[in-house]
């Protein structure tokens, strides 16, 4: 099966930030969620994949096309939407749609019309009068209706109210019906990633600290509630990401869960009372606090 994208040893240096040695790929038909705090390198990675920025080292291949050499061909099949893209405020959505139709031969009018309806947008109104959420949805519509094979979306749900966010997520979920289309989206809303992504890539300080199948990634982590006193040797157990205690209750967050852990903890003096799965949000915060080791 073809890779939607594959990057290897990717580096990009800016004066105050460097993306370092990122090697990552996505199988066609899958959705990857890119998580990380502000400044982790999410936007840089997306820009390198669109060909807007050029890598200092490493290779970038998108839908089988090597960048920057085959940039022009690759760009035809990439749809990129990011917050800092500007639409013409004095023109209407219909005007923008007509322009896109002229540029892109694959433009799908029926799909565009259904998205106008789903996103509850007024096509004749000039975009200067649109709210932030409406502009985000308009931009996404212009990107989706081209039916690009690889969608690169930088923070598609940031700043949206809950209704608009649900509309956008439903539109993205619909993209999955076609198994030849792939999506890479960044978000600091880990709920969106937890819901939509097949794979998770976790960036921190310009490095890729984890990438995995989402269900397997979630499976690795657990939150344990224990009773007892914390044995001093516990801080050297590599599978534990965080140990906190309040009175006789000890909370342990585990990054590599195994069935024999409760017995080993019990032997060390901690009796495990509860074992719960963790949300991606909790995993994310725990990893960042543990110094970016997932």
């Amino acid at each position: 099966m073809m890779a939607a994208f594959a990057v290897s040893g990717l580096c990009k240096r800016y004066p105050h930030f460097a993306l370092q040695e990122v090697t990552l790929s996505l199988t066609e038909g899958e959705v990857m969620g890119l998580v990380g705090v502000n400044g982790a390198g999410k936007t840089t990675l997306l820009r390198l994949l669109t060909g807007i920025a050029a890598a200092d080292a490493g290779s970038v291949e998108v839908l089988g096309h090597r960048l920057p050499q085959a940039q022009v061909t690759a760009k035809r099949e990439i749809g990129f939407a990011s917050e800092d893209m500007r639409l013409y405020r004095s023109q209407s959505l219909d005007w923008h749609i007509a322009m896109m139709r002229r540029i892109y031969p694959g433009w799908d009018d029926a799909y565009a019309a259904s998205l106008v309806h789903r996103f509850d947008l007024r096509p004749q109104q000039t975009l200067g009068g649109y709210s932030h959420g409406q502009r985000v949805k308009a931009l996404l519509l212009l990107c989706l209706a081209r039916r690009p094979r690889l969608l690169l979306l930088d923070e598609p749900t940031t700043g949206l109210d809950p209704v608009a966010r649900a509309e956008v997520l439903e539109a993205l979920a619909d993209v999955l019906r076609d198994e030849r289309r792939s999506v890479l989206f960044s978000s600091h809303n880990s709920h969106d990633v937890e819901q939509l992504a097949d794979r998770i890539a976790f960036l921190h300080g310009g490095r890729l600290i984890a990438h995995a199948d989402k269900e397997r990634f979630l499976d690795d982590w657990r939150r344990l509630l224990c009773l007892g006193s914390v044995p001093p040797a516990l801080s050297s157990w590599p599978e534990l990401a965080q140990v906190r205690h309040a009175g006789s209750q000890v909370e342990v967050k585990v990054r590599r869960w195994s069935e024999d852990l409760p017995a080993r903890l019990s032997a060390a003096g901690l009796s495990v009372q509860r074992v719960d799965p963790m949300s991606l949000e909790d995993i994310f915060v725990t990893s960042v606090r543990a110094g970016g080791v997932a």
């Binding site: 038909g29 439903e170 979920a173 999955l176 019906r177 819901q195 992504a197 097949d198 989402k214």
Partner: peptide, 17 residues
């Protein structure tokens, strides 16, 4: 799997699992 994923707005891997 793809239909159910799209209908319920969750990822393909989740439905597969």
């Amino acid at each position: 799997i793809r239909e159910l994923a799209a209908d319920s707005g969750v990822s393909v891997i989740t439905v597969k699992r």
